[in-house]
Amino acid sequence: MDLRQMEVVVTVAEAGGFTAAAQRLHVVQSAVSSTVLALERELGTSLFDRTTHRVFLTPAGEVFVPAARAALRAAEQARAAVDLVRGKLRGRVTIGMAQGVWADLHRPLAALRAEHPGVTVRLRQASLADVRHGLREGTLDLAVVALDRGQQRGLVTRLLSYEEMVLVSAPPRALTGTGPDGTVTLAGAARLPLVDFTPDWAIRLCVDRAFRAAGVERETALEVDDIVTAAELVRSDLGVCVMPASIAGRFPDLVTHAFARHAPHWKIMMVHPRGDTPPAVTALLGHMA
């Protein structure tokens, strides 16, 4: 058994099939199949159940894959430690980020590349549930998420920003129910046509929580899954949208209204598993402080 065999099995498990794994590994499918078969013969058991369209882990595969991931991470950390001594930091950092969470991630990534060009960064944008799953399974080294709590079991968390949200409307729109200072209430916002993000977006989760806490019922008029589309709908005066102030600031032609009270808010957290932190991850964390 060698590291390459482990890498192939882990890739098949993550990709959900031999063809997809071959594409990720930049090899032909037959090479992936023969590698898996050779390892299964060596172990004396099947790691995958094959079907026409997909493969699934057997009970043996379920226990093998996490152990293989740990071995691959240990080997990568060993190489990174030697490279660090030589003054050439290398390695790979895989980051998970929930949709629409942090608009400034490009800054620490650019700083990391400038300082350590040998470090490869992989970014996976997904739902909060998938990001948490990736942290548990070890497929993510760290994540940027919106959390209610500062601490999570088995995870190290760091606050990146705390931010209140605002209501965004089209320039000519005179909102009903606004105060003399232009502020709006959640109850007033609920009476307007709302542009919402899909339920798996972190923004939507925080907005839903704020309305529930205030005892205000609302109805979504338009549901989208990207910021630009939401802004275009608002710009066309088809609805209003609740979003973080930092994101609203990217659309200076739109009008922002602060909430008079009970403003939706979120905490943007950097999260990574407890334990030994690979040198490449440590280098990135230094730029996220």
Rank of each mutant, 00 (worst) to 15 (best):
D276V: 14
V9L: 03
L186T: 02
V228H: 14
M288R: 11
A60D: 14
Q99P: 15
E219M: 11
E219Y: 07
L175P: 00
P66F: 00
L205D: 06
H272W: 14
A20M: 08
H265S: 14
I203G: 06
V195G: 01
V240M: 06
R212E: 15
D181E: 11
R204Q: 13
A213L: 14
R149C: 05
S169H: 03
E40T: 00
R132G: 08
S236A: 15
V156T: 15
A98N: 06
W266S: 10
E14Q: 09
E76F: 00
A189I: 06
A74T: 00
V9T: 01
V121R: 06
L112I: 06
L160Q: 09
T178W: 08
S46P: 08
A114I: 11
L175A: 01
A103H: 15
P264R: 04
H272R: 14
S46D: 10
L175W: 01
Q151I: 15
E115N: 10
L25S: 04
W102T: 02
E164T: 13
R122E: 14
L238Q: 15
A80I: 05
E76C: 01
M1E: 05
L142D: 01
S34D: 04
R90D: 11
A146C: 08
L238N: 11
C241Y: 01
W266T: 07
W201I: 05
D276R: 14
R107S: 13
R50Y: 01
V224Y: 03
A98F: 10
R149I: 04
L25V: 03
R153W: 12
A174D: 01
A110Y: 07
A22S: 02
S34E: 07
T45M: 09
L205E: 10
A202E: 12
V9N: 00
A210F: 05
L233F: 11
R149W: 08
G177Q: 03
L186C: 03
V271I: 08
A67H: 01
D200R: 10
E14G: 07
I227A: 15
A22I: 01
V36T: 08
L186P: 02
P264C: 05
T282F: 02
